[in-house]
C-alpha cells in the first residue's frame, strides 16, 4: 500500500476529529499518476468525517501529483509553501484546504519525543 492510501485509510478508520467539530464541508483530493487518477472524497459534518474513494462533487478540490501526495502522507510537505509554488492546486475554499492540511503529519513530529510535555 502506498503512504497515500495508508493515510486515507487511517482517516476512514478514525471517523471523528475533535479539531473539526465546527467544520462542515467537502474536500476532494485528485491525485494524478501519469494517466491514472485516484480520487478521495472527504465529507466533514461537525467533526464526523466520512472518507470514500469517489469522484463525487466537492466544494473544494485539491489537485496534486502522486509524488507530492506520497510526500504529504509521509509528512514531508509544507502545504502552504507547496500551494504558493504551484505544486498543490486548490480550487474552492482555500481556508478549508488549509484546515484539511492539518490532518497530514509533519516529519519532525515523528522524530520528536524529547523533553516535551
Amino acid at each position: 500500500m502506498t503512504a497515500t492510501s495508508a493515510f486515507f485509510e487511517r482517516l476512514t478508520v478514525a471517523g471523528q476529529d475533535p479539531r473539526f467539530s465546527n467544520v462542515c464541508g467537502s474536500v476532494r483530493f485528485d491525485i494524478r499518476d501519469g494517466d491514472r487518477l485516484e480520487q478521495w472524497l472527504l465529507n466533514i459534518d461537525h467533526g464526523r468525517m466520512r472518507v470514500t474513494r469517489s469522484a463525487g462533487p466537492a466544494e473544494t478540490v485539491i489537485r496534486v501529483s502522486a509524488e507530492v501526495a506520497e510526500a504529504m502522507a509521509r509528512g514531508e510537505v509544507n502545504g502552504l509553501a507547496a500551494i504558493t509554488r504551484g505544486e498543490i492546486l486548490v480550487d474552492g475554499d482555500l481556508a478549508m484546504a488549509l484546515r484539511i492540511g492539518r490532518l497530514f503529519p509533519r516529519a519532525s513530529e515523528q522524530a520528536d519525543s524529547d523533553g516535551r510535555k
Partner: peptide, 29 residues
C-alpha cells in the same frame, strides 16, 4: 485558521501556537 497543529522544528510550530509571520514570496514558497 492558521494556528499551529503539529510540531515542526523549521517553522517553530507547536499545536495551539499562533503564527508570527506569513509570507507568499519565492523564499517562503
Amino acid at each position: 485558521s492558521l494556528q499551529g497543529a503539529r510540531t515542526d522544528d523549521v517553522l517553530d510550530e507547536d499545536p495551539g501556537r499562533i503564527l508570527h509571520e506569513l509570507r507568499y514570496g519565492e523564499s517562503a514558497a
